[in-house]
Each structure stands twice: as C-alpha cells, then as structure tokens.
C-alpha cells in the first residue's frame, strides 16, 4: 500500500487526471452552470428580499457573498462525490492502487476551479444587486482572498465529502460536518472582502491580515486532507 504512495510523480499525475476528469464531467453535464450558479444567484436575490434595505445590503454584501458561497459548496461537494460513488468508482480507483493523496488533490483542484467561477459570479452579483464596488487595489485583495478561501473550502469539502461518501444519509450529514469547520473561512473571507469593497470605510490595508488567516487554514487542511484521505477511503 505504501509503495505506490512514495512516488510523488504518480501522485501529481493522478491529481491531474482526476481533476481533468471532474472538469470534463462538468463540461458535459453542466450541473454547475445550469443548477448551482442559478441557485447561488437566487440566494443573493432572496437575501435582498429578507433584508429589504439598500443601505443594509451594501453593509452586509461581503458576508452575503461568502454565505452564498458556503451554501453552494455543500451542493457542489455532494455533486463531486455523487459522481464517484454512483458506480462504486471510488472503490475501484482504490482497489486499482491509485494513490489516495492523488485523488484528494485532483478532486480538490477541480472543486477549487469551480468555486472560483462561483465566487466571481457572486462578486458580480454583489456589484449589480448590492451596489458593492472596488478599486484596482481592492480587486487584487479580492482575487487573492478568493484564491485562498476557495482553496481552503475545496480542501475541507473534499475531505468531509470523502468521509461522508458511500454512507447512507450523507446528504443531510455533510452540512452539519462541514459548516462548523469552515467558520474561519467565512470570518476571514468576509473581513477581507469588506476591506476590498471599502464597506463602512474600512481601509484595504486592514484586509491583508485576514488573508493570512485564510492561507493558514488552506495550508493546514490541504495537508491534513492529503494525509487523512487514504485512511478515510480504505474502509
């Protein structure tokens, strides 16, 4: 078992194949495009109904962007592992000796790429619907925040998705497991986005420490996922 894990080239080749496969599945099935993105947009519209004030919406726009992202992550992780468990694909990958770390990194990268598209759309929705705006400098902070946050979310999502995969009742269990863990991402990404949008006159420079929190989170859970994914799948 440990022998094939030693070759790091094998791990990254696997990761590339798995992420390319996941993105190809998405390109052909268009679940993200036709189902998840519209869902995230309608959530943004619903927030506006619930809060019912332009001033409040402008104030809370960064938080709503990331809340909508978290709700969508739940759906996307379920989808990501529904693809794998449908025909017992994950079990077959493992019994074929495919390194678990490679599977983890591959699925995480594919999820991260899809999440980046989602966040870009949600920021656009915040600009259009909630009157959010940002400068070039804020845009740089926003992009780096989005990369770090989606990396962390994708790592945790893949890890807990793998944990719940193949077990009955995973659809209802995933939110309970995932949401408490990603609380630091919600806090960090929302504060950094507030700086980028200049919400309540918060300076852009105040956003960078929060980016640090996001990076720490992303690194810790990427490593934890790469290590723990094998034991989780080898049931």
């Amino acid at each position: 078992m440990s022998k094939e894990l030693q070759g790091s080239a094998g791990v990254f080749a696997t990761a590339r194949l798995i992420s390319a496969k996941d993105l190809r599945v998405e390109r052909r099935s268009r679940v993200l495009l036709n189902q998840v993105l519209p869902f995230a947009l309608i959530v943004m519209v619903m927030f506006a109904f619930a809060l019912d004030s332009d001033a409040i919406l402008e104030r809370v726009a960064p938080g709503l962007v990331w809340l909508a992202t978290l709700f969508s992550v739940l759906v996307m992780v379920s989808r990501s592992f529904a693809v794998e468990t449908a025909d017992g694909a994950l079990d077959q990958l493992r019994s074929a000796g495919v390194p678990a770390t490679g599977i983890f990194i591959g699925k995480m990268l594919a999820l991260m790429a899809q999440l980046l598209v989602l966040v870009a759309l949600l920021v656009g929705a915040a600009v259009v619907l909630y009157r959010a705006s940002f400068s070039w400098e804020g845009g740089v902070l926003l992009v780096t925040t989005a990369i770090a946050a989606t990396c962390g979310l994708a790592a945790v999502g893949t890890l807990y998705g793998g944990l719940a995969a193949g077990a009955k009742g995973r659809e209802t269990l995933l939110p309970l497991l995932l949401l408490p863990v990603v609380a630091p991402v919600l806090i960090g990404a929302t504060r950094a986005t507030e700086s980028a949008f200049g919400t309540n006159g918060i300076a852009i420079s105040e956003g960078w420490p929060w980016l640090g929190l996001l990076v720490v989170f992303a690194v810790l859970f990427s490593v934890a996922g790469a290590v723990a994914f094998g034991p989780l799948l080898d049931d």
């Binding site: 630091p184 929060w210 929190l213 720490v216 080898d234 049931d235």
Partner: peptide
C-alpha cells in the same frame, strides 16, 4: 472506528482555528 477516529483528530485541528479566528474577529 477509523472514520470517527480521523474525524476526531480533524476536530483537534479545527477547534484551535475556530477559537483563533473568533478571537481575532
């Protein structure tokens, strides 16, 4: 046993992060 043991160790990782970020917030 294995599933829950991994989860329990992940919780050990998660809780300090949550505490730290809430404190910062």
């Amino acid at each position: 046993a294995r599933r829950s043991a991994v989860l329990a160790l992940l919780a050990v990782l998660e809780i300090p992060l949550v505490h730290f970020s809430v404190q910062l917030w």
